[in-house]
Every structure is written in structure tokens, then in C-alpha cells.
């Protein structure tokens, strides 16, 4: 009977694990798989957290480089102040919003829509009025996607033999691996390389080793300016690698602002459930021990 219980439990786990692929936003790869490495993130795992300093640097990289083409329209200025994020001081964000950003005001008494300085409650305005304007300003006509959810909207395709799939899944489930999107975005940002000589890159496109085959993206290398393109005020080395890591962490926060609260509450809940399950087990044993 125990044997059957275990067999069924294993079958059930394998069923769920094997079917819960949950991966691959990308192409059917029977080409050589792009191997996207996993990165160490401060926010990964059960005890992971965002680091406000890194998110602040990431915002700087975003506003100075990425914001030329990409919006983060699902973020509001007030999000930059709240706990669990970059945790900027409120006064600083208020003046940043008011000084550097203008949004449409309500129509005035004559019916004209004028601009007004942004306030905390406003969404962070993007560089373009609409998608069409965005496409028009790109050489290839590609649409630079909004980045609010980019790390949640990307994943990594793994090309494992079928018998390794359940093994990998159990590993990922035990580790609480949710950073595939961040790993991909980092790989993409640092993936602009010269292609081998036999590869012909179409006009208006750029070669990126992390981007799905055939590895052509309409986006140019954002860090073509190299190191020191963005000035860091906190002494962190101003390398392209750090820019990529910091902006990816910022975008990971942008896509999942409740992470800190989620993992904190999760720890409490898991401990509570563990205790309760143990107590209930012994209670069940006690009640059933009465039977003869």
C-alpha cells in the first residue's frame, strides 16, 4: 500500500512537473540552442530582495539610455517612492516629475488641452505619443516594446532530452526560479556582438547572440557608448556589464513591484503551514490510534 502511495505521488508530481513547462516565449528551436546563462540576482530565491541602490542606478540607466525609445507606462512616479522598490525620497521624485515631465492637463475652459507638470500620481510618460510615432522614429520601423513587463514576458528555451525535463523542473521548483526573464534581458543587453563573416545582417537590423535565431533585432546596441556612458553617483564601477545588470534589476522590479511583500509574507505562510501540517499529522495519528 505504501508502494502504491509513493508510486502515485511520484506519478502525480511527474505529471505536474512534466506538463508545467511554463517556458519558452521563443521560437521552435531545432537550431543550435542559444545558451542563456543564469545570473546571480539579489532578488532570486526564497529570501531574495531588490536592492534599492541597484534599482536607483537602473532607473538612471533607463532614463538616460532606454527612455529614448522605450516607455514604462505601467509605472507611476509614486511607485519610485514606495517600499520594496528604488525607495527614492518623495521630495526628489516630486521635483523630478515636475521638472522633467509634462503630461496632458484636463481641457481648459476653452476646450484646449495644455500641458502641466507631472505629479506623483501620474504614470511615467514615454518618449512617443503613440505606437505609430514610435515606429516612425526607428530605422527599421520596429516598435520598441514598453518595458514595464519585459522581464515577465520573456523566458529561456531549454533544449533538454526528455528524461532530463522532470529533473530540471524539480530543481527549478525547489529553487523557486523565476528569473528567466531577467536572465534573458541581461543576456540580450550584453549580446550585441559582431557576427561571424558568413552571416549577412539585413539593413536596419542588428546582430544579437541572445535574440532568437536568426539573431537579428531591430534594436541597436544601447551601450554602444561603452563604459562611462552613464555616471553613477554611488561609486559603483561604470561598466557596460553593470549598466546591463542594474537596468535589468530595475525592469525586474518594474514588472513585479510586489516581490518584497510577496516573499516576506510567503516566508510567514510557509512556516505557519509547516507547523500546522506537523500538528495536524500528530493529531490525526492520535485520533486514529484509537482504532483497533
Amino acid at each position: 500500500m505504501i508502494g502504491l502511495k509513493i508510486k502515485t505521488a511520484v506519478a502525480a508530481v511527474l505529471l505536474a512537473a512534466a506538463l508545467g513547462t511554463g517556458a519558452s516565449a521563443h521560437e521552435g528551436g531545432h537550431e543550435a540552442a542559444v545558451h542563456i546563462m543564469r545570473q546571480p540576482w539579489t532578488f532570486s530565491g526564497m529570501l531574495g530582495k531588490f536592492e534599492p541602490g541597484q534599482l536607483q542606478r537602473g532607473l538612471k540607466v533607463y532614463t538616460e539610455i532606454c527612455a529614448r525609445c522605450h516607455s514604462v507606462k505601467r509605472l507611476s512616479f509614486r511607485n519610485l517612492v514606495q517600499p520594496g522598490g528604488p525607495e527614492f525620497p518623495e521630495a526628489g521624485v516630486k521635483s523630478l516629475a515636475a521638472d522633467k515631465y509634462k503630461v496632458d492637463a484636463e481641457p481648459n475652459d476653452q476646450g484646449k488641452v495644455l500641458k502641466r507638470p507631472a505629479v506623483l500620481a501620474d504614470h511615467i510618460p514615454g518618449p512617443y505619443k503613440n505606437d505609430q510615432e514610435a515606429r516612425a522614429s526607428q530605422p527599421g520601423g520596429a516598435l520598441p516594446p514598453d518595458l514595464s513587463l519585459i522581464t515577465r514576458a520573456r523566458s529561456i528555451e531549454t533544449h533538454l532530452p526528455f528524461y532530463m525535463v522532470p529533473v530540471n523542473m524539480v530543481r527549478d521548483i525547489l529553487a523557486g526560479y523565476q528569473e528567466a526573464g531577467a536572465d534573458y534581458v541581461y543576456a540580450f543587453l550584453t549580446g550585441f556582438k559582431e557576427p561571424s563573416r558568413d552571416v549577412k545582417v539585413p539593413d536596419g537590423m542588428n546582430y544579437n547572440v541572445a535574440f532568437p535565431a536568426p539573431h537579428f533585432t531591430g534594436m541597436p546596441n544601447p551601450f554602444a557608448g561603452g563604459n562611462d556612458a552613464v555616471k553613477y553617483d554611488d561609486g559603483t564601477p561604470q561598466t557596460v556589464d553593470n549598466y546591463a545588470r542594474d537596468v535589468t534589476a530595475f525592469l525586474a522590479w518594474a514588472g513585479d513591484p510586489s516581490l518584497a511583500e510577496r516573499k516576506r509574507l510567503g516566508l510567514l505562510v510557509m512556516v505557519y503551514l509547516l507547523i500546522t501540517a506537523v500538528l495536524l499529522y500528530f493529531a490525526k495519528r492520535r485520533v486514529w490510534s484509537n482504532l483497533h
Binding site: 505557519y272 503551514l273 507547523i275 500546522t276 500538528l279 495536524l280 493529531a283 492520535r286 484509537n290 482504532l291
Partner: peptide, 24 residues
Amino acid sequence: SHTAEEPNRRDFIVIAAQAFAAVG
């Protein structure tokens, strides 16, 4: 007919388990 074993229901572990579950 678990006759003599009524205290079972009021066993500490049973009460503790139920209390924990109820709080959650």
C-alpha cells in the same frame, strides 16, 4: 463505538492542531 477513548477529542495535540488551523 470507540467507547472509553472520549478524551481523545480533547487531546492537547488535537486542540493545538485545530487552533493553529483556525487561526490561519
